[in-house]
């Protein structure tokens, strides 16, 4: 995926002499090539999401899909929101916010490596990049060996392309949704499949196993208990499960890390 280093140096050396418009063109093209796998992934996932949201939520307009994709750009969150929109009365605004925090807490961590570099970018570009910082985009721009203006151009292009793919995919799906020639019964499985795929990829790393096992087993127990003892309330168990999971994980945190809890407070206090 990454171009060889020698080639990259060559591009930089050539572009220093060429006029500014020309100078960024190779980087734009490289950014497009680097984002091709994301094109395939986002288009399929976007279409799946669009079809899902239109068929599951009655009266959902394609325009809403576009706005939602443009301002959220988060596959897992949007898939989860389908379930919320379907049973909208059962979810309060605060519940939705908490669920969004839980699902997307990882994005907070993604921003950390870029703090120093992005601070020098103009504010509109920085906020655009922050908006588009997804799993896939993060992976691509982490792997980029560029520096300075070329890096900025590359990162901006990758983020822009990825947001565009996602919006195009979801709107296409939403427009297709009600005109599919076959029965869409069972399409809701795509949501589960997406989560399973992400989980499998995460579990390739040994360090993620404990989190996955704790998360999965706690949720299984909580939902099973709720279904047996409090039928009808089982769809409100997510928060309870998450609280238990965080508690368990903090208990298991390595001791050296645990006593640094106070560090967070110190950080916040001295802002």
């Amino acid at each position: 995926m990454e171009p060889p280093v020698a080639e990259n140096i060559h591009v930089q050396a050539v572009s220093r002499k060429s006029p500014p418009g020309r100078r960024y063109w190779p980087t734009v093209r490289e950014a497009f090539v680097a984002s091709l796998p994301v094109l395939m992934g986002y288009l399929t996932m976007g279409i799946a999401f669009g079809v899902l949201v239109v068929t599951q939520v009655p009266g959902f307009h394609a325009g809403w899909t576009f706005l939602m994709s443009l301002f959220t750009v988060s596959g897992s969150m949007q898939f989860a929101s389908v379930e919320m929109l379907r049973n909208a009365p059962q979810y309060s605004l605060i519940g939705t916010a908490i669920l969004a925090v839980l699902i997307n807490i990882r994005y907070t961590v993604y921003g950390l490596p870029f703090l120093r570099v992005w601070r020098n970018y103009p504010w509109w570009l920085r906020w655009g990049l922050i908006l588009g910082l997804t799993d896939e985009t993060y992976a691509i721009i982490c792997a980029s060996p560029r520096h300075g203006k070329l890096q900025r151009c590359f990162v901006s292009c990758v983020v822009f392309f990825d947001i565009a793919y996602w919006c195009i995919g979801t709107v296409t799906g939403a427009l297709l949704g009600n005109h599919l020639p076959f029965s869409t019964e069972g399409i809701e499985f795509a949501m589960l499949a997406l989560f399973v795929v992400i989980l499998v990829d995460l579990c390739r790393k040994r360090e993620n196993w404990r989190g996955a096992v704790v998360g999965g087993s706690v949720t299984t127990v909580v939902i099973a208990l709720a279904m047996v003892f409090f039928p009808g309330t089982a769809n409100k168990t997510l928060l309870i499960a998450m609280a238990i999971i965080i508690g368990l994980l903090l208990r298991n945190a390595p001791a050296a890390k645990r006593h640094k809890i106070c560090n967070i407070y110190l950080h916040i206090k001295y802002l």
Binding site: S76, L102, I103, I105, R106, F195, I198, L199, L202, C203, N208, W209, G211, A212, V213, V214, G215, G216, V218, T219, L238, A241, M242, I245, I246, L249
Partner: peptide, 8 residues
């Protein structure tokens, strides 16, 4: 937490 949340 990412792995745990996704497993959940």
């Amino acid at each position: 937490l990412t792995a745990a949340a996704i497993a959940m």
